[in-house]
Write a protein that binds this DNA or RNA. Structure first.
Length: 233
DNA sequence: GCCAACGTTGGC
DNA sequence: GCCAACGTTGGC
């Protein structure tokens, strides 16, 4: 299936290295056709621009901040460990990694909307303590995910081709750890409260698109979460 | 390990 | 294009 979560090593960043490998989840589909046609896509695309939360009523608001899920604990997928914690990111050259292995159209489309310099929360998922642990920034906009062409990679996609790559990835660089761990449970409590009060987390996708490993955040959502850093829980 | 949510596949 | 079956994500 499609899904993704993770990313992995290598970074192409400035130096152009080639990518390495990594993974995330995988799966496949067909390209463009799918893109346009599948449900996920459409929703995603649109969501991105419009919705938004605050503000935007009809207009299209563009997301400028993101949340990236990654699994900090070992888990094997087709023989490969998908573990990639924020500590792993910090250990990469330039503290930068390519976010490969994303095999979900909605998540892929969000990656394609990511712009240089935008920030993303690094979220630990499928682990003992799920929540936000740090902040990263986009240091390379989308380009083909090399793992789709590698038959030995868990995320190989035989339906994709170098001429028409189906899957994309971006490079992200570690910025800093959040001042404290911001647990999913804490975000959820605010989310529920905000649903009634109309607060900034009322529409946070973390609670409605459970399976989306790459999520857009509005500026208001991002900033509200940053204020949580300052308050001891 | 269980299970709810939800995306994908594939028959028709 | 609908929809049931299936598979995956990911919290608990």
């Amino acid at each position: 299936m499609p899904w993704p979560s993770r990313k992995r090593s290598q970074a192409a960043t400035e130096d152009k290295k080639k990518p390495e490998t990594k993974q995330a989840k995988h799966e496949s589909h067909e390209e463009s056709a799918m893109e346009s046609s599948k449900p996920a896509e459409k929703s995603s695309g649109k969501v991105v621009k419009k919705e938004a939360s605050s503000g935007g009523q009809g207009s299209k608001q563009t997301y400028s901040h993101w949340l990236l899920k990654s699994e900090p604990e070992s888990r094997f997928e087709k023989g490969a460990d998908v573990k990639f914690s924020i500590e792993d990111l910090k250990a990469e050259p330039n503290q930068t990694a390519c976010w490969d292995g994303i095999r979900n159209y909605q998540a892929r489309n969000f990656m394609r909307d990511m712009k240089l310099g935008q920030e993303a929360f690094f979220y630990h998922s499928n682990c003992k303590d799920p929540g936000i642990v740090g902040i990263t920034k986009i240091v390379k906009e989308f380009y083909p995910d090399h793992t789709q062409f590698d038959e030995k990679d868990p995320h190989y996609d035989s339906s994709s081709s170098k001429e028409k790559p189906k899957w994309s990835m971006v490079d992200v660089q570690f910025v800093r750890m959040t001042k404290r761990f911001i647990a999913l449970s804490e975000l959820k409590a605010h989310h529920q409260e905000h649903k009634e009060s109309g607060g900034p987390l009322k529409n946070m996708l973390l609670f409605s698109r459970h399976r989306l490993s790459i999520q857009p955040l509005t500026k208001e959502e991002f900033e509200f979460i940053l204020t949580l850093e300052e308050k001891p829980r």
